[in-house]
């Protein structure tokens, strides 16, 4: 049984009588420990898929099964617990709470998990060390660079030791170099045995992951566009896949 099973997922928006199929009958299995990139043109439904996988959104049709739990049958509170314990979400725009400092931001998921103050502090420090942000504990997000904020956000996603890390264009707002640093972090998480799914527009990043899924018009493409996936090395001008140690 796969860690994540999507069966016939559709997400349909109705805008002024017009029907928008953000996802159209998507079925997908993702096993434990996989490292996957999701690619596809803008508006194809990548974020929608991630939100459904991350239990932030519910599909219009179809079933989601996450680590044995049927998401469509779960209550709002159960979904909150799933998001809290099983999923770590990393956003394109970091989404740190501006009024809290770095440690407090990282401690927040553990507050909702009901951990003691002592344990929260210990684990937050460990997670921040892991992303090399252990020296900026008392800073506010606004006092950090984008890359630093994203590292704090990753620490926050990791801190409850989730099985799945979901990242929606985590490097989309960062320069190439910083993007590489962040990507290295995800590779390490994958190497530690976590399931990592990331959405990207960057072929170089897609090339790094063992498995690639392309979404087009709300459907999973049969064959991955090699150019988008950074696999076509013959064409001149397309960059070679980066290698990050």
């Amino acid at each position: 049984m796969a860690l994540l099973e999507l069966r016939n997922i559709s997400k349909i928006y109705h805008l002024g009588g017009e029907e928008i199929r953000a996802l159209d009958d998507v079925s997908l299995d993702i096993g434990e420990g996989e490292f996957i990139s999701i690619i596809g043109p803008s508006g194809s439904g990548k974020s929608t898929l991630m939100h459904i996988v991350g239990c932030l959104d519910t599909p219009s049709k179809g079933t989601v099964r996450l680590d044995g739990v049927e998401a469509q049958n779960a209550s709002q509170t159960q979904l909150a617990h799933l998001r809290n314990k099983k999923i770590g979400f990393v956003f394109q725009f970091f989404n740190l709470l501006p009024k809290l400092n770095v440690v407090q931001n990282v401690e927040l998921p553990m507050i909702y998990a009901g951990l003691s103050a002592k344990e929260r502090r210990e684990r937050a420090l460990k997670a921040l060390e892991a992303v090399e942000m252990g020296n900026r504990l008392k800073n506010r997000p606004s006092q950090l660079s984008g890359g630093q904020q994203q590292r704090v956000a990753i620490a926050r996603a990791l801190v409850n030791d989730p099985k799945i890390i979901l990242a929606d264009e985590p490097t989309g707002n960062l320069d190439t170099h910083t993007g590489e640093v962040i990507l290295a972090l995800f590779r390490r998480l994958s190497a530690e045995g976590r399931t990592v799914i990331l959405v990207t527009h960057n072929p170089e990043i897609a090339a790094v992951t063992p498995r690639r899924i392309e979404i087009r018009n709300g459907k999973i493409a049969d064959k991955v566009d090699e150019r988008l996936a950074g696999l076509d090395r013959t064409k001149p001008g397309s960059p070679a896949p980066i290698s990050v140690a």
Binding site: L56, T77, A80, A157
Partner: peptide, 15 residues
């Protein structure tokens, strides 16, 4: 948005 973030990282409705 803040409330959304809190919910995304595991805050329940009652929280």
């Amino acid at each position: 948005r803040e409330i959304g973030i809190c919910k995304a990282i595991g805050a329940t409705g009652p929280d």
